[in-house]
């Protein structure tokens, strides 16, 4: 019985991890396209991550350069298991760091305070309930403008270069 439960859990974890690695890969493809439009360079290199849920696994980080010798930032996978999201990548430069999260669906919370604390963590309920993040439109990568106000902005080219400027102190 224990072995079956373990097998199911491992399978669920594998699904989560595979989906995360897929989404990271899609994000890199999108970003590499944007970078090439601005004549910036990118390179993916293997990167090991260790998470409590999955153990060690291999992913990739994306190095972003002005030219072949001048790296200005990198996209670094952080975790497939994130509180309030379905994965995280950090955009890290010499000056700052920004968090990008993958949101699969609008996470709703019950509005009533009478709900049991043991209810399922993600409540997909009626529209009258609160979203975890304002600004969610569809599944994709988001930048959390403000955690305390729960403001999310979908990652697009303009936003990406704003964030890249912020972390690297370069203008684009």
């Amino acid at each position: 019985m224990w072995a079956i439960r373990r097998f199911i859990m491992d399978k669920e974890k594998k699904v989560i991890l595979d989906e995360y690695l897929n989404k990271v890969s899609e994000c890199y493809t999108m970003v590499e396209q944007w970078l090439s439009e601005k004549s910036l360079f990118s390179k993916q290199i293997e990167y090991d991550l260790h998470e409590k849920e999955s153990g060690k696994y291999v992913t990739k980080k994306l190095l972003i350069s002005k030219n072949e010798n001048k790296q200005i930032a990198e996209l670094l996978p952080v975790s497939a298991w994130i509180i309030g999201a379905n994965g995280r990548i950090d955009l890290i430069g010499n000056f700052d760091q920004q968090i990008l999260i993958y949101l699969k669906e609008d996470i709703k919370m019950k509005g009533s305070v009478t709900t049991s604390i043991n209810d399922d963590e993600y409540q997909k309920v009626s529209k009258s309930n609160h979203s975890l993040y304002k600004g969610f439109e569809k599944a994709g990568w988001y930048w959390i403008e403000d955690k305390r106000f729960g403001k999310a902005r979908a990652l697009n080219k303009d936003l990406f270069f704003d964030l890249l400027s912020e972390v690297s102190d370069y203008e684009f």
Binding site: K52, I82, I83, M109, K147
Partner: peptide, 14 residues
């Protein structure tokens, strides 16, 4: 999530 809503714990790993 109801407890952690609008806190800095969001987007961190456990």
């Amino acid at each position: 999530i109801r407890l952690l809503h609008k806190t800095d714990f969001l987007t961190n790993s456990e």
